[in-house]
């Protein structure tokens, strides 16, 4: 009875797993075959790398990769630099208005910049940043998520450590730098990883705010290239799709345990 139940559980779990991984498996298979073989599910068709060559030559993927990397670098550096002091102030300093302002910060967890595209477009336009990499990153640079996450982490630093540093005459900035930041390293890694995958995957806002090859990130480059109405083979489209997900996907497959642990750390509140 229990053996049969275990078999059903395993079967169900695997069925779900296959459905969840099927798109990726199919994409890999299709990208390695000719268009006719891929849509005809011809199992014995010869393998080919031709699709990758055609996709690579068909759209500026290298430029897209560069743009995505720059946006991610801006986001990482600026968010770390701005959220760290803010999180420290919210965690360990007391000043008038602190709790009210913190509540205001948390509003962004509800109202994300994605929802405010119409007005943010006006703002970015007034700043003259339409079709620029900074324009892609700017609305996300003040991050409630980052402040919240780091604040949680800073609050777990033992008060005695902070007190000892204070007695040595260290001001808030140096205490933050010498005591808090080193102890919060795992949180920075988790936060950084979530940030990288967010900006790697972000699509709607970059689509709206970019207008030329020199600024389009990978996702938008892919979308411009891989519209089926352009008469492309499915195999070429899947090859392009795989190319644009490959760096993050390969990193995930190699470091899957660390990846998931860090996502968990970022999500557990």
């Amino acid at each position: 009875m229990t053996a049969r139940f275990a078999a059903i559980e395993t079967l169900g779990a695997w069925l779900l797993g296959l459905i969840w991984i099927a798109p990726l498996f199919w994409a890999i298979w299709a990208a390695l075959h000719s268009g006719a073989a891929a849509t005809g599910f011809d199992v014995f068709a010869p393998l080919t790398l031709e699709n990758f060559v055609r996709a690579w030559n068909g759209a500026p993927f290298a430029q897209g990769l560069l743009n995505t990397s720059i946006v991610i670098t801006i986001a990482l550096v600026v968010q770390f630099a701005l959220c760290t002091p803010a999180a420290f102030a919210f965690a360990r300093l007391s000043f008038p208005g602190r709790d009210l302002v913190f509540a205001l910060v948390l509003v962004q967890l509800m109202v994300s910049p994605d929802v405010l595209i119409v007005q943010n477009y006006q703002t970015i336009s007034r700043l003259g940043l339409i079709d620029s990499l900074l324009g892609i990153a700017l609305p996300y640079l003040g991050s409630a998520f980052g402040i919240f996450l780091l604040r949680q982490s800073f609050r777990q630093v033992p008060q005695e450590l902070d007190e000892a540093a204070r007695l040595e005459g260290l001001g808030p900035i140096r205490r933050l730098w010498r005591v808090y930041v080193p102890l919060a390293r795992p949180t920075y890694i988790a936060y950084g990883l979530v940030l990288v995958s967010f900006h790697w995957n972000n699509f709607l806002w970059p689509l709206i705010v970019t207008d030329s090859v020199s600024t389009r990130p990978l996702t938008v480059t892919l979308a411009m290239f891989a519209t089926p109405d352009q008469g492309l083979d499915w195999s070429v489209i899947t090859a392009a799709t795989l190319m644009s997900v490959a760096p993050l996907l390969v990193a995930f497959l190699i470091f899957q345990r660390q990846f998931m642990q860090n996502f968990m750390r970022a999500g557990v509140r």
């Binding site: 002091p85 803010a86 420290f88 007391s94 509003v107 405010l116 700017l138 003040g142 402040i147």
Partner: peptide, 24 residues
């Protein structure tokens, strides 16, 4: 401490206000 607190949150807060509260 109050001044330090406000100085530390101000840069992040400005960006948050500019792209969340102001547009709202």
């Amino acid at each position: 401490e109050a001044i330090a607190g406000w100085m530390l949150i101000l840069p992040a807060l400005l960006l948050l206000v500019a792209f969340t509260h102001y547009p709202t």
